[in-house]
Structure formats: structure tokens, C-alpha cells
Design a protein around this nucleic acid. Structure first.
Length: 733
DNA sequence: GGTTAGACCATATAGACAGCATGTC
DNA sequence: CTATATGGTCTAACC
């Protein structure tokens, strides 16, 4: 099917012709034939890189040409940025794009002036909870990676958000984009959508299993030189020999770093001097991102052309690794599943070095077929590689045949809704009442009846769970029943818009009421004991230390469970460990020290401080609402945001002054905003550097009364503009 | 005497969304 | 209630 013949406005057609798209890929053509441009709902369950984004683009641009507005829902912030960048190219044909994620936002209402809004599923849910007016003007909804309905964590939010959007915009077109899955018909049925299902890829993918010096593909064998003991290293060297790059998937962070280190010397030897020199520069760049042990390891790997990638890295490091893999300088990335989903980072060869993953309940378990296919699908860069290869590694003949059966010849699993538990449903039952999607128990049952869960499984099994949720919300005075209808209390409304689990809200209020002496640790532990907090794993060695802390600080905890109830107590110690980490963060311990002491990465510290700040903010609101003392929480919210002690709160409120600079100034006796105003530029420069000092004084409205000339014109302070892309980077040094 | 391969044992286990109001070294 | 790859430490065999 030719682009020129599509039923689209001339300027849209011209846009695609100009970017070299003259013909549609077969799945795209099928989508058009099935009514993509006639406002028909559609589910495309097709492989990675087979042109899913374009399918959604055609529908969105068609819709916009008729005066419509589109919402594009993604599962990851990184993916939101990626799509936002892509869609921004439509500005040349007069289409405006907005992005909305938790860390990157403009005001909700302003967002509505755009034609396409890219948002994460939670953010879309949050926009609905805030009753953002333009949400009812949506004409096309795109749900990317809709197979995430299967996720116990986030699937329920996705299906409720879809259900609400469809309720609000009954005539809108919905387009689901999915990986290939077992029950695509079923999801299409739920969405009342036409189904496009295909295995077609623009670049051939060969899936093989390695055994005894050969990759065994369906049709052929490929011998691999046996150079070192680790077969994955041999596979990597072979790929580099053929001028390709490798993505190696591992099951743990330690293994990621381990493999990159193992492979680096041989890989380095096969690279030419020019490249090695460039890699040296990249390694230097990495060393500037921080000075943790992990950073040094990463830099030493990159020097030799390998790298590792996982969520323990900070975002600057991740970006360096991703960018330099894309530009073909780094030859190998060994990664956890971070890189399997979403992000566009293909490689000639994918090696699944580890197909088992640890589950605390079931021991080592083989990963789902769907996960494997997602990894394998990363192989082959369209128009750059002649083909893509994925390789599983087996050690025995039995394992070999098992892997063929289990993965190569297997169909991906069915997607199963996880909405049917109280934990999943609680928050959505509340928000549904708050926003008036349901005002009675029966209305709630009806609304939940439009979920994927109800479509797929027994509708009645949801009723009990809904009742449990309603009971919980009533007991905690988040909703009330006046005999005729259910309505939300002020508390319920606040909890819904804060976007915390009602259980978290209940825990915070309950513990705040019970606490008589509220210290930093009391507050920190309260938020760490909510289900919205991500707990740290307690290592065996740490048991004693944390236990000791609890014993000596027992009066700072609202309740300490009985140490003889070991499971409950160990869980409690995990909460305390998490609280201790945050405590060190706000005690200005260096990132280096915290990573070493707690065995976490910088990425984890960032994530934890982020969540804590959000929950502490929620605690402030909840305390105010229930006439409890919010001062401590208020102070801690600020401290967590900047990672500082109390005495620095004032200094750190100034732009360009963070925890490190503020401490330097404070030690030098410059301890408040007025102190800074009274400090001469050349003195301030000793602590902040000349450029920053200038910016700071300028910001405070002080004319730098210094006769020395500034070397260069100071940059104007960057301000956020709606089309600016950025990530929150307060720790990306 | 120094080196190295194999045996044994302890150990740790993926990722990431949300509020609010604008960012660090 | 469920497992296993990894890496450090030790030992024995080797040059």
C-alpha cells in the first residue's frame, strides 16, 4: 500500500513522503484496511520494530485533521520522552505535542492546548482524578505496550484508566499496541477492536540456541570460535568480528557488571586505536558522573568497549551507555531487563545468557516466553544490520531441546488481568467514587464490569472484592454512605489526588495519631511502612546492625513488632533499613558512602528519595487535614528533596545551590540568604566558582559589586519551556 | 617455591509509576 | 515449602 493513496490530508501525506516513507509495511497496510483511518478501534499485536508507532501516528494525524485530540499512553517515562521527541517532528505540519509524566510536567490544563499528549498510564489516571477538563475531548486514545495489562503491579491501573477514558469519551477511537501475545483476540474483544496480528518484521530475526561450539538455528548452524571459557564471551567476540554489536541479558545486577568485566580485555584487544581513544574519553565522562565503586567499574569497562546497564546506575550514566551504544562506540552492553522493554536500543545479536530469574516464592524460575521474545526482538537494527540474531545458551543436550521447546517454538503466554484483589482495587474504588464514575455500590459493580478483568474472568468474583474495598474505605472515613449513595469525604478526595494507596493514607494517619514523640526516624519509618514505599532487601549480615539500632531507638518507633514473630519482625527491619538510608541522605552523607553502606546503586537512592519525598508530602497534607502536627513532616519533605540537614534548608532554596555547595557556604559562615547578599562576588566565587556565584547574586537581585570583570557572559538561567525535553536530574552530577 | 585448576561453600537475587514545583556538581 | 550462578577461599596437582 502506498503512502500517497491513503485517505489522509495532503500535508500529512507530504510529511511522510518527505521523510522517505513511500510504502506501508504489511501490518500497517492491514491496519488501514481494517479501518484505522475510519475511526475503527484497533489492536495491533505485532513484533517490536514492525512499525507500531506509525500505525498510531496515522490514526492520530487523521483524527487531528478533523479537529480531534489524542492521548498516547506509555508505561515508562523514558518511553514518553522517546515518543515525545518523535512526535515533535509533526510541529512542521502544525501539530502541537505535550508530555506529562511525574517528573516532567507543565500545568495540567495548559497541556490540553496540544493535539497529542504523551503520558504514562499513572499520569493519565492522575489527570482523570484531577478532573482535567480536556480529558473529555479526547478523540483518539493510543495505549502502547498494552500487554502490560498482565502486570500485577501496574496492569490494574492501566485497565481502569482505559475503562474511565472510554466511559468519558464513548465515541473515541482506541488503538492498542501490543507485543505478540497468546490471547490478542480477547483483548481486541474487550476493546471492541479489529485485530491485526502478525509475525512480520522489517528485518529478519534468527532465533537460535547455543550448544557445543555452534549456534543452532532452525535452518542452519553457525560455528563459534572457542577462544575463552565463557561461551557468551565467545559469542560477543564473534559478533564484533562481524562488525556487529551485542546486547547481553542477565538476571542480576551483579552478573551484569561481572560479565562486562569478564569480556572487556578480549573485546578491547579487537578494537582499533582510534576507537579506544574515543572510548577513553567516554570513560572520563563517566568518571565525572560520581565517584562510587560502580562508577569506576563502569568506566574501566567502557575503556575496553563493554558496559553494563541496570537501575542502580544514575541517569547520567545510563544515558552515556545508551547513547554510545547507539553511535556504535560501545560494542557490548550487559543488562538486566531494563533494556528489554520499550526503549529503542537494538543490536545485531542478543544473547540471553540467563533465562532464569529468582522468585522468593518459587526459587529460580524460567522467564515467561513473552519476556524472552521481548529480549530477542531487540536483535537487528533496521537498515543497519543485515539480520538480527538471538541466542540462548544451553550446556547439555537436554537443556538444548528444552530451550527450543520452551522458547523458540513457543507461543507467548496469555495476558491475564490482575485486577481481582483488594490491594489492586482499593485505590481505584476510591477514585471512582471521588470522580463520580460510580455513586452507588451497584454503580461501582457496573463500572468495574467494564474492566478487562470482568470481560475475561467471572464478573461476580469482583463483587466481593469491591465490597471489601468499600468497607475498608468506609472504616477509614474516606467515603461515606448516606443510605442512597456513596460519596467521598475530604480525606478521600485528598488521598485520591495525592495518588497514594488508601492503605498508605490510613497507616500514616493511624501512626501519626499514636506517636507521642515524633523524631526524624519516627516520621521516616512511618512512610517506609506504607505499601507505596519500595522496601530494601535485608541482607543477612545487616540483621545484627539494624536490630541493634531498633533496640537503642525503640522509643522512636510507633510500634515495634515482637522480635519472636520472625517474619513480621524481619519485614519491620527492612522498613527500618530503608528509613536509615533516607536518614543518611538527609544527614548529607555522600552518595559514595551510602551506596557502599547499603549495597545499593545511586539510581536506587534517587528513586527512594523521590518516593519518600512524595510520601512525606502526602503526610503533610494528611496531618493538616486531621489536625495533627505537620511541622516535622514539612521540614523533612524539604530536607529529603535536597538531601540536607535542617540548617541548610534556607540556603538550598536558592537555585544552583545544592547540598554540597550549601554546606561549603555554611561552613564558611555564610548561612542565610541575607548572608549571601552581603558577600562580595569574589568571596562567593571561592566557594561556588565564578559563574555560579554570579548567577546566585543575580537571582537574589544583588548587583555584584565587584570590580573584576567576569570572564564570560553568564548564561541566562534556564527556564522550563513546554517543548523542552528533560529528565529530573538532581543527582546527575 | 610459585602457579593454577578444580572443589567447596557462603551468598545474594529485575524494574519503576505517582505529588509538587523547579533543578546539582 | 520450593533454586542456582557467582566469586572467594582453600587444596592439591603441576611446572
Amino acid at each position: 500500500m502506498e503512502t500517497g493513496k491513503l485517505e489522509l490530508p495532503e500535508y500529512v501525506i507530504q510529511f511522510y513522503l518527505d521523510t522517505g516513507i513511500e510504502k506501508l509495511y504489511p501490518p500497517q497496510a492491514e491496519a488501514v484496511e481494517k479501518g484505522l483511518l475510519d475511526n475503527k478501534n484497533l489492536l495491533a499485536a505485532i513484533p517490536t520494530a514492525s512499525g507500531k508507532t506509525l500505525i498510531s501516528e496515522l490514526a492520530m494525524l487523521k483524527s487531528i485533521s478533523n479537529g480531534g485530540k489524542c492521548l498516547y499512553i506509555v508505561p515508562l517515562r523514558a518511553l514518553a520522552s522517546e515518543k515525545f521527541e518523535r512526535f515533535k517532528q509533526f510541529s512542521s505540519i502544525g501539530v502541537n505535542i505535550g508530555i506529562s509524566t511525574g517528573d516532567f510536567d507543565s500545568t495540567d490544563e495548559w497541556l490540553g492546548s496540544n493535539d497529542i499528549i504523551v503520558a504514562t498510564s499513572e499520569k493519565a489516571d492522575s489527570l482523570l482524578r484531577n478532573e482535567t477538563s480536556w480529558m473529555k475531548d479526547i478523540t483518539t486514545i493510543v495505549v502502547d505496550e498494552i500487554h502490560l495489562l498482565d502486570s500485577a503491579d501496574r496492569g490494574p491501573t492501566l485497565e481502569i484508566t482505559i475503562a474511565k477514558l472510554l466511559r468519558l469519551n464513548p465515541n473515541s477511537q482506541i488503538i492498542g499496541l501490543s507485543a505478540t501475545i497468546g490471547n490478542a483476540e480477547e483483548i481486541a474483544g474487550w476493546l471492541d477492536a479489529e485485530l491485526v496480528q502478525s509475525q512480520w518484521r522489517p528485518i529478519e530475526l534468527y532465533e537460535g540456541v547455543f550448544l557445543e561450539d555452534n549456534i543452532n538455528f532452525k535452518q542452519s548452524q553457525k560455528p563459534i570460535k572457542n577462544i575463552v571459557k565463557d561461551t557468551a564471551v565467545n559469542l560477543v567476540l564473534d559478533t564484533i568480528d562481524e562488525n556487529g554489536q551485542c546486547l547481553v541479558f542477565e538476571s542480576s545486577r551483579r552478573n551484569c557488571a561481572g560479565f562486562a568485566k569478564k569480556a572487556k580485555s578480549k573485546v578491547g584487544k579487537s578494537l582499533d586505536k582510534g576507537l579506544l581513544a574515543e572510548l577513553n574519553n567516554i570513560a572520563e565522562e563517566v568518571l565525572e558522573t560520581s565517584d562510587t565503586e560502580t562508577t569506576k567499574e563502569l568506566a574501566s569497562c567502557i575503556k575496553r568497549g563493554t558496559a553494563f546497564h541496570h537501575a542502580g546506575l544514575n541517569s547520567a550514566q545510563r544515558k552515556i551507555v545508551e547513547d554510545n551504544f547507539r553511535n556504535n562506540k560501545i560494542k557490548v552492553i550487559s543488562s538486566t531487563p531494563t533494556l528489554a522493554a520499550g526503549l529503542n536500543l537494538p543490536a545485531r545479536r542478543v544473547i540471553v545468557r540467563n533465562y532464569k530469574r529468582y522468585d522468593p516464592n518459587f526459587g529460580m524460575q524460567p522467564i515467561p516466553v513473552l519476556d524472552y521474545k521481548q529480549m530477542a526482538g531487540r536483535a537487528g537494527r533496521p537498515s543497519l544490520d543485515p539480520y538480527g540474531e538471538s541466542v540462548l545458551i544451553s550446556h547439555t543436550y537436554n537443556e538444548f531441546t528444552d530451550l527450543l521447546d520452551r522458547y523458540i517454538d513457543a507461543e507467548p503466554e496469555d495476558i491475564l488481568s490482575k485486577l481481582g484483589t483488594e490491594n489492586a482495587l482499593r485505590t481505584h474504588v476510591l477514585s471512582t467514587i471521588v470522580n463520580g464514575f460510580a455513586t452507588t455500590r451497584q454503580g461501582m459493580v457496573d463500572f468495574m464490569g467494564s474492566s478487562f478483568f470482568a470481560y475475561q474472568q467471572q464478573k461476580w468474583s469482583l463483587i466481593d472484592v469491591v465490597d471489601d474495598c468499600i468497607e475498608f474505605l468506609q472504616d477509614n472515613e474516606m467515603i461515606k454512605d448516606d443510605g442512597e449513595r456513596l460519596y467521598a469525604t475530604r480525606l478521600g478526595q485528598v488521598i485520591s489526588t495525592l495518588y497514594i494507596d488508601p492503605l498508605s493514607g490510613a497507616i500514616i494517619i493511624d501512626k501519626l495519631k499514636k506517636a507521642d514523640k515524633v523524631t526524624d526516624m519516627t516520621m521516616l519509618h512511618i512512610i517506609c511502612s506504607t505499601p507505596d514505599m519500595r522496601q530494601l532487601y535485608l541482607r543477612s549480615k545487616e540483621y545484627e546492625k539494624i536490630n541493634e539500632y531498633v533496640m537503642t531507638h525503640s522509643d522512636e518507633f510507633v510500634e515495634v513488632p515482637n522480635p519472636f514473630k520472625s517474619i513480621e519482625y524481619e519485614w519491620f527491619l527492612g522498613e527500618v533499613k530503608t528509613a536509615l538510608l533516607i536518614n543518611e541522605w538527609i544527614d548529607e552523607k555522600t552518595l559514595d558512602d551510602i551506596t557502599a553502606e547499603f549495597g545499593v546503586g545511586e539510581g536506587d537512592i534517587n528513586a527512594l528519595s523521590d518516593i519518600s519525598e512524595w510520601l512525606m508530602h502526602s503526610a503533610v497534607n494528611l496531618a493538616n487535614l486531621t489536625d495533627l502536627d505537620a511541622d516535622k513532616a514539612q521540614e523533612l519533605e524539604k530536607r529529603i528533596h535536597h538531601g540536607v540537614n535542617k540548617d541548610l534548608i534556607q540556603l538550598v532554596s536558592i537555585s544552583n545551590i545544592g547540598r554540597v555547595r550549601a554546606r561549603k557556604l555554611y561552613e564558611a559562615g555564610i548561612q542565610s540568604v541575607s548572608d549571601i547578599k552581603n558577600t562580595k562576588l569574589h568571596i562567593l566565587s571561592n566557594y561556588l566558582g565564578r559563574k555560579t556565584a554570579y548567577k546566585v547574586l543575580e537571582q537574589l537581585g544583588v548587583e555584584p559589586e565587584d570590580n573584576q570583570q567576569i570572564d564570560e557572559e553568564p548564561e541566562s538561567i534556564k527556564s522550563y519551556s513546554g517543548n523542552d525535553q528533560g529528565q529530573k536530574t538532581f543527582n546527575d552530577f
